[in-house]
């Protein structure tokens, strides 16, 4: 289920309170977080992420071309 996936990704990112902004960019979710250190990289990869790149509190989750859909599913949960 798409919504379930969005929910699990959101949880792996530290939950809704940790999200400052999520911006989809065709293959990845650019996530600006309150605290980048709590991101559960293993869980994101188990959910199908090709990679996770961290730069402080900005974390990019490479999810492939469905990034737009996932981002809007996550937005619905915020």
């Amino acid at each position: 289920m798409a919504d379930e996936k969005a929910q699990k990704i959101l949880a792996a990112l530290g939950g809704r309170d940790n999200i400052v902004e999520i911006e989809p960019c065709i293959t990845r979710l650019r996530c600006e977080l309150e605290d980048g250190s709590v991101v559960d990289e293993k869980a994101l990869k188990a959910l199908g992420a090709h990679g996770v790149m961290r730069s402080g509190n900005v974390v990019q989750v490479v999810v492939g071309p469905e990034a737009d859909t996932i981002a809007s599913d996550i937005e619905d949960l915020l």
Partner: peptide, 9 residues
């Protein structure tokens, strides 16, 4: 760009 350079997608 790491995502493209490493052929992640």
């Amino acid at each position: 760009d790491q995502v493209f350079a490493e052929a992640m997608v």
